[in-house]
Every structure is written in C-alpha cells, then in structure tokens.
C-alpha cells in the first residue's frame, strides 16, 4: 500500500502545491537589477500575495534571484550561496546579462551565460525587467513547480562534474572546498 506509484502521486501533488505557494527568495543583489526588487515586494506590486517572501539567509531560502551581471569575483560567492541552500532550490536569472551577457557581453571580468555555471530554472528577459515581468517570471516558476519540471537542483547534482569544470575555468584562484553543501 505504501510507496506505490498512486500514493506517491498524491504526495507529489501536496508537495508541489506547498512548494509553489511558499517561495522564500534570496536576492543576490549585486547587479543593477536589484533596484527592481523593492517595488516588486512593496505596496504597488505586492509579491507577497503569491506567497513570495524575502528570506535573509541561504539556509531558509528556496529561490536564488540573480539580479543582473555577475563579475567573475562574485560568481564564487554565488556558487557558495547556491550550494548552502537546501534542496529543492531554484534559480531565477534576472535581466539580459544572465542570458547572454547583455551590455557587458565583451567585458573582461563578467560571465556571459549563467546557465553554464548554475542550473537556471527561469530567465526573466529585459534590461531592466519591470516588476510586472518579475512577477510573470515567478508565476512561470510556480507553473513549473506544479508540473514538477523545476528540477535544476537535481540536474546540478547529476552533472556536478561538468558544472565544476566550467566554474573552475572562470575562477582561477579556487581557494574554497570543492563542495559547500
């Protein structure tokens, strides 16, 4: 009776419903996109009605919000933060810079494609994306969670060697442990 496919399905539905409606976000706000987070969370656009809530530490967070470009120096910190988060965890790439580098595409010290280094679940397009676009991105993430397709954390675990090789190509002075889990 237990652990068969039917009861697992019911558990999955309850799990995904709870995960979908309670997203604690950790905004990594070093890029210029961080300026769009306060209007998204406060009175005018009010992301809390979707159950989206700011969280202060990576241990409690579900969503890592990367707001804009990442310098090679800050990539190291992002990897550390991402690996400190507890499964299941999701990454939202925010702005054009995380997709293809945006206006910093030929800069010597920023990364261009975030997906090479961390598994991104949802991209939000724009430079900057308006709060409406941010909320649309969150709703898209909620849909993916409901369908069970937001499994970037699982992909990261399965392809850990590939991701680590990519990360070490960028970060030349790797002075931290290989895994920060």
């Amino acid at each position: 009776m237990y652990n068969d496919k039917e009861s697992q399905k019911i558990v999955d539905i309850i799990q995904n419903y709870a995960r979908k409606h309670s997203l604690f976000i950790l905004a990594y706000g070093t890029g210029c996109g961080a300026i769009e987070i306060p209007p998204t969370m406060t009175s005018r656009y009010d992301a809390e009605r979707f159950g989206i809530r700011g969280s202060a530490t990576p241990r409690q967070a579900d969503v890592l919000l990367i707001t804009g470009y990442l310098a090679t120096k800050s990539l190291k910190r992002v990897i550390k933060v991402y690996e400190q988060m507890q499964d299941p965890k999701y990454v939202i790439g925010f702005g054009s810079c995380t997709i293809n580098g945006g206006m910093y595409w030929d800069s010597y010290n920023t990364i261009n494609v975030l997906d090479k280094y961390l598994p991104v679940d949802v991209y939000i397009n724009g430079c900057m994306p308006r709060p409406e676009a941010v909320i649309a991105g969150f709703v898209k993430l909620q849909k993916l969670i409901q369908q069970g397709k937001a499994d970037g954390w699982d992909i990261y675990k399965k392809n850990i060697d590939e991701y680590k090789a990519n990360q070490k190509k960028i970060i030349t002075n790797w002075v931290m442990p290989d895994f920060n889990f």
Binding site: I14, Q15, Y17, A18, R19, H21, S22, T42, S43, D46, E48, R49, G51, R53, D62, Q86, D87, P88
Partner: peptide
Amino acid sequence: RVGPPVWQNFLDVLKLLFKK
C-alpha cells in the same frame, strides 16, 4: 497591499517540512 492568504503560514510550514 493585498497580502498573503490567512492560511499562508500553514503552507510555509508544510513546504519547510518537505525540504531536505
């Protein structure tokens, strides 16, 4: 603001229970 539904805290607790 509109604010979260009043049962939001139950969802938060449930989700945190399902986290690894």
